[in-house]
Design a protein around this nucleic acid. Structure first.
Lengths: 152, 152
DNA sequence: TATTGTTATACTCTATAACTATA
DNA sequence: TATAGTTATAGAGTATAACAATA
């Protein structure tokens, strides 16, 4: 099927996209996201849910709004996330001590174990995805650079 | 409003998230995406639409499916994108020479000018977003690294 | 049989506005 | 009046399945 209009054998020229950090970030993140989902979907955990658990695990007692602000999400998005994680018996809402409007979020006993096993999987997934980097220095440099690019 | 459960003055501990390239990629990309939208939304151009235009500009005559494959999208998503860009008189569908099933995509005369001005904006946006990087070497290193992390 | 563009559909993610109960 | 959680809703973005025309 010879077809001039498809350039099957010719590589596509990405032009300006090759020099745009924004585009490269999108492709890299898409790759990580897809692999993460394959690795963790059987546990019912998406990247977003994992981030919520990680914050609650390290910061017990935070309110839903505080978690949302830390992750850069809207607080309305937290409702379904916390509903799901509470339904999975991973985290729990407790009435906040000094403010009857808000809940404080805590890991359940099962949730703490679950998070440990989940973290092991995620770390393994990261190791595979970052295997092409040249050593620990390059990894640290990348993490710092991405952090710099995330602010403001 | 003193409230122990909110840790207003205490920084949130991101724990394992700090060491995950996947999470850092997500935050950095979110930042780029938001800024891109602010810079280009008045032109009706999203990051995804910009990518389509960039590919068509550099590879005139590609089919919709070929563009979708290059960008890692499903071909069904191309329909609305090309509809919109054709409605804006930026690109146009022409019957493919050797295959009456497919269209070949080309820039219009106006589209070529539009893309030049749009690119200038995007490059300016990129310059601002990457101003924190230390020189051109670091930028090139980052682009190469992200490309490496995008594959497979 | 396989592929292109298309449509319908659905699912996720995200953000906005409005409501309630508290503060 | 302002805020926390909630609900309803709507807009992107993305993916799947099926169809007609064509290969």
């Amino acid at each position: 099927m010879a077809d001039d209009t498809k350039y099957i054998d010719n590589p596509v020229d990405f032009g300006i996209l090759n020099s745009l950090v924004g585009y490269r970030l999108r492709r890299a993140q898409m790759n990580f996201f897809t692999n993460f989902s394959e690795v963790c979907s059987d546990l019912g955990i998406s990247p977003g849910l994992f981030a919520v658990i990680a914050i609650v695990d390290k910061n017990p007692g935070l309110t839903q709004t505080a978690v949302a602000q830390a992750l850069g999400n809207d607080r309305s998005a937290m409702v379904a996330a916390v509903d799901k994680l509470e339904g999975m018996d991973v985290i729990e809402r407790r009435p906040a001590k000094n403010d009857r409007r808000s809940y404080a979020l805590f890991m359940t006993k099962y949730g703490a174990e679950f998070f440990q096993q989940l973290s092991a999987r995620v770390i393994e997934h990261e190791k595979i995805m970052t295997a092409r980097l040249k050593g620990d220095d390059e990894l640290k440099w990348l993490l710092n650079t991405l952090d710099t690019l995330s602010k403001e």
